[in-house]
Design a protein around this nucleic acid. Structure first.
Lengths: 236, 236, 236, 236
DNA sequence: TATGAATGAGTTTTCATTCAT
DNA sequence: AATGAATGAAAACTCATTCAT
């Protein structure tokens, strides 16, 4: 009647994880003791487990088991389960903001820039399910862990700046209406991109239609871009 | 991560719960044996705990403690922690669909009907945070519990019918574009209403702006109605 | 994750129970309150449950559930789980001794009488599995419950008398050897008849041969009679 | 039926257990970390408790208490109560078969070999009460745990081979009859050796004679050997 | 006589964390 | 830097029995 360590069972279907634990081992030779690699390995496995099971649902044992190291190392490097969880949050939030930098939307025409931003946001959420899940999980905990992640706030302002720039240029060009708040717009875009990923399971069972199905993805992407553009566009 | 049985700590701030456990005791006198009341009482407390702590985070002891009964009764009526969780899901999903029935959108002009539907959806999510949180939690578990809730699928079709009716009438009246899918539209509306509630904590800390603040609520409500109407409206 | 009340699961395969609970309802009309019938019904169900699950393994709830009455009645009539168990023992032991009386072995030729006794013992054990199991269970508890069953000791002497009579007559007739102790012989016969029923499960899995299979039954019956007769017979 | 943790009360009287827990600690010094010893210690205590109380009757707490370790280790090594029970079964069954190997019956004259086998079987059951009780307990559970014990079936064939060899040689030598099936004969021998141990309590109270009394043991041993030899011997 | 609801004390199991090596 | 064994505290769940009707 043993249970075995099933670990991270739910929601590993679909386009799976963006993190391939175990075999990360890049760099030159396979040194016997490689602290950095060990840490990275733990972090990758933890990302999967926390994302799949939630903070309370995740099992330290389960994480340790899928690691190249032992449980002790996990405590050695991250201090506690919560410490590890925060490290995961930090890593994951860092990734998305880093990518957003590379968009160079400012060089595009406002409408095209807006389209590019929405498409990027869509694609990112669509692909980084772990990210979406972790955000969801954080919200269940009242965001109290992410609050402690240093440099979390600072990072997020950049998107707002991007949007403000787009809006300003669009208004100046007579393409966009002038009464749209940048943060509100960001919320609107996020909503549309986030919900279909984060709540796809209940949505799927409720309506017998998995929103993450490839065919739907294309349609949703177009729909969301369309909705956002209609929203910001100046009516004449 | 020590606990004590402080229970349901996170996220009980804001416009709190719609369920006032304990004092339900309606009917005649305070009968000592009132199974229905006992069940309802347990269910109400459980709704709060699960919604606040998640399925894994919730503590059976914590639920029992805030109940008029003992832990034993919880098992007597619901069989297990998961059984209780499912009962909560069933109740909560039942509530929203029941309310949707009373909208009588079909009697309104398509545009006004659409506005009414969106406003209702907005208000419901805005008020029923427990519902939003439970849906979120379910998605972390891959919706596997809600799948077992009988009559879950059936209930959800009604919204789609409502939307289909609105769309059809709007198209006929030349007010709406004809290329919108009802389920996609429902997803769009849900996204906009759900996200700002479900993820308000991370959003709040990221942008220093709590989307559930009363002043913002009014603005968001208008924005979402606007966005939806712009999306469905036929451009000439 | 409900467990349901599976109750009496193990070992109900094969030629099942000799007690048909529920529908005993004999006697004249179906009176609404029939204490005797209620008691008998409880006793029958309890026999099955105890026999299948053991004293500790049996569940009062499981018994009550398969009864026409409620759990309360069970306590009303039998006082406690143990009281009910003892009542079951009393009933079951009463049955076998009553049957033994009807053998009238004393009228038969010693060899034929011995054969008849062995065959009867064989058949009884073969058919009354509940009895065999309950004896087994009692032995796990050091026979401490059967000791309290009044008239238990008295009843058993009769078999010994029967054997003594057979032995004496057989010796007198020059058919049997004279150095066999009656109680020892009874033990020998019991052993042969009991073991293949009581331990048929482990025997079955160990040797891939179920000793209770009809074909084996015939062979075993003959073998045991043969073994006993060879044992008592005087060699010349 | 209140308990307290008096543990293993029934049936520890008589020539008690063959396993002396606690003080096993062989090997060099008293190392603080000695997994093998820890496991063996747990296993020994568990053997006693399960044998005395049955699977359902046994208390994990009671086992842990009489151990050098804590309850947690019990789960660490054996996974669950049932897992521990199975480990006990495995150990106990392994022991008897191992001993049987050392008999070297094949070197003896068929009659003497048969006598040696029966005497060995008798002695083993007479001494290893824990084994007898555990087999009994397993049968109450329909042998469903022993079935899962790998290598259980394989082990048992050896006895049959031994018997087949004895029979074949005895027939060839004109000493044994030729119509005896090896498995049936094994059943017969087991019956005689098992029953007087396993059911000695009910037998004792029924006939006021404890079959495990030293004086009776000698007599029974002779009787059983006699009965078996008479059964297999060729009559002329 | 009969019943469904209720319960306290126990029982198995789990989990994050630390110790000895 | 790394490890497998060990643990206390808590969590889920069960059970025989009794109460109010």
């Amino acid at each position: 009647m043993k249970k075995g360590s099933k670990a991270a069972e739910p929601d590993t279907n679909g386009i799976t994880s963006d993190t391939a634990p175990g075999d990360v081992r890049r760099g030159d030779a396979r040194r016997k003791y490689d602290p950095e690699q060990t840490k990275r390995n733990i972090l990758d496995v933890a990302t999967q487990e926390f994302s799949a099971m939630g903070l309370t649902g995740a099992r330290v044992d389960a994480i340790a088991e899928r690691t190249n190291t032992t449980k002790r190392m996990l405590y050695y490097y991250f201090g506690s389960k919560e410490g590890l969880y925060q490290a995961v949050l930090e890593k994951v939030y860092g990734d998305i903001r880093a990518l957003e930098q590379d968009l160079h939307v400012s060089e595009l025409d406002p409408v095209e820039g807006m389209r590019a931003l929405v498409e990027f946001t869509f694609d990112y959420h669509d692909r980084q399910r772990d990210f979406v899940r972790l955000v969801t999980i954080e919200n269940i905990h009242g965001a109290k862990y992410v609050e402690q992640v240093k440099s979390f706030k600072g990072r997020n302002v950049t998107v707002i700046h991007t949007i403000e720039d787009l809006l300003a240029r669009g208004i100046a060009a007579g393409q966009f209406r002038s009464d749209v708040d940048a943060i509100d717009l960001h919320l609107l875009i996020s909503s549309l991109c986030f919900h279909r990923v984060g709540n796809r399971h209940t949505f799927g069972t409720a309506f017998g239609r998995d929103p993450s199905h490839p065919r739907l993805r294309v349609r949703h992407r177009a729909m969301i871009v369309d909705a956002v553009l209609r929203f910001v566009r100046k009516e004449d």
